[in-house]
Structures are given as structure tokens and as C-alpha cells.
């Protein structure tokens, strides 16, 4: 399982998202690799799941099979709910 978080430049929100997701995965006992990157290079990445803010993520909908859109990047509960819904049970 490979999760890529994406933001405009790959330094800010994508890293925040990645850390939150790492936390959630650990708490849920799920094994997956996570990586943060910028929107420009995102399309060349291989990913089973892309997580991004709604503004950025909508540019990626056509490039990836599964894109999770997050409105509030500081809300762990929103991220958790949306992430777990997409992960295989």
C-alpha cells in the first residue's frame, strides 16, 4: 500500500498531512508507506491512494484511481474517517 500526500510545493500541507496520516496508520495498526510530494511531480508517482486538500486534489482526480479530498487539514477526525473509508478492510 502506497499513500502519497500532495500539496502545491511539497513542503507545507503535504508534510502536515503525511505526519497526520502516519499517526493514524500507527494508531489503527495499518502498514503502508507514505510520501509527500508537490502537485507538479505527483502525476509521475505510483500511488494506491492520493490524499490532498480539496483545492489541490481536484487537479488529480483524472490522474489517479483513488483521491481523498480533505477540507480541514488540521482535523485528524476528518482525515481519519476519509482515509479509513478508502483503505481495504
Amino acid at each position: 500500500m502506497r499513500i502519497v500526500t500532495v500539496c502545491g510545493m511539497g513542503f507545507g500541507t503535504s508534510l502536515m498531512l503525511k505526519m497526520t496520516i502516519d499517526d493514524i496508520l500507527k494508531e489503527e495498526g495499518i502498514k503502508a508507506s507514505t510520501e509527500a510530494c508537490d502537485v507538479g511531480s505527483a502525476k509521475s508517482r505510483q500511488a494506491d491512494l492520493v490524499v490532498a486538500s480539496t483545492d489541490i486534489g481536484k487537479h488529480l482526480l483524472t490522474s489517479f484511481r483513488k483521491v481523498v479530498l480533505i477540507n480541514n487539514l488540521t482535523d485528524k477526525n476528518e482525515i481519519r474517517a476519509k482515509l479509513l473509508a478508502e483503505l481495504p478492510k
Binding site: C7, G8, M9, F11, G12, T13, M16, V39, A52, S53, T54, D55, I56, N72, L73, T74, D75
Partner: peptide
């Protein structure tokens, strides 16, 4: 410029924006 080009995605949570640029 980043906001102009990439959209208001830096608004990371209700009421909170985190503008930044590349190193």
C-alpha cells in the same frame, strides 16, 4: 504568486491559511 497559481489550497482549516513558497 503560489496562491495565484495553485489556488487557495493553503487555507488548511476553517479560518487558517498557511502561505509558503519553495526553498
Amino acid at each position: 504568486r503560489a496562491v495565484q497559481e495553485l489556488g487557495p489550497y493553503i487555507v488548511i482549516a476553517p479560518g487558517i491559511a498557511m502561505p509558503h513558497a519553495r526553498p
